[in-house]
Design a protein around this nucleic acid. Structure first.
Lengths: 140, 140
DNA sequence: TTGCTCCTCACGTCACGTGAGGTGGC
DNA sequence: TTGCTCCTCACGTCACGTGAGGTGGC
């Protein structure tokens, strides 16, 4: 077995992962501070393994789903420990189902907000039309 | 003219406004600290006028629309100064149209997240079904 | 005297952003 | 020597939440 990269042995710099996933170095360091990542070091510099990259991918996916880092952290740990995947799957399933409900509610709020904004826009356009053409203060 | 309430002369305590609008006293004090509200005082206690209430209503409406307090503040000031409503209307119109786009993008993100979650839920249910019935570690 | 509502600091939360100031290897 | 990327503090941001400790009027 060679010491050098057999595909999964590949390593990444912080910048490489940032570019790949579109996040900042500060974010990666922040996740590390929270104990969610633990890259190796070469001097002071961080060296990310293929597995670190996998964890990062899950972190960002969890974030997109609107989960707080604390919960993503839990799910990550569970995955590490739970070899059968049973406990992990049950827990994730429950949490994901909850999150779907939460997101659906958020979408409702956004829909209401958009409707409200569209109504306001219509009123403002009307107001400007009335005020507009030859009003003393109309621009130009 | 009587000194006492002719409908618009009515005043409110902080608690009354909180209950009416479903927010906390801390929030009202916070908006005041930002200069968005300026209730009268009776000793140390805050006395909100009908106009304070109107401003609060707009603040909360802006928040529901996803506007940051700083922008809500601007629109509020504009309304105060701009008697014709022309400048105000133009500015609000522009900002609202922008915000509609922003919210539509957020709704998209949420839709994608929900789809992703639903897929994950389906996979987990399948996984649990395979693992389930007579697995050594299945619960009970 | 007890309760209630009000008050003023002031630190905590969440997920980083943003400098300041410094190092290492090409 | 200049540039580049990396690093470590540490304070700032946003919109409040959450005590701690105290006051006023029924």
């Amino acid at each position: 077995m060679s010491v050098e990269p057999s595909r999964a042995g590949r390593t990444f710099t912080i910048r490489q992962l940032c570019e790949e996933f579109g996040c900042t170095a500060r974010a990666l360091r922040f996740y590390e501070g929270k104990g969610m990542l633990a890259p190796a070091r070469q001097g002071l510099n961080r060296i990310y393994s293929h597995r670190d990259r996998g964890r990062l991918r899950l972190i960002l996916r969890g974030k997109r789903m609107g989960l707080p880092l604390s919960e993503i952290h839990e799910l990550l740990e569970l995955r590490e420990v739970d070899h059968t995947g049973l406990h992990q799957a049950a827990r994730s399933l429950h949490r994901f189902q909850q999150q779907i409900v939460t997101l659906q509610a958020q979408r409702q709020d956004i829909d209401f907000a958009i409707a409200d904004l569209e109504e306001a826009v219509a009123r403002l356009e009307q107001h400007l039309a009335n005020l507009g053409p030859n009003h003393p203060e109309s621009p130009q």
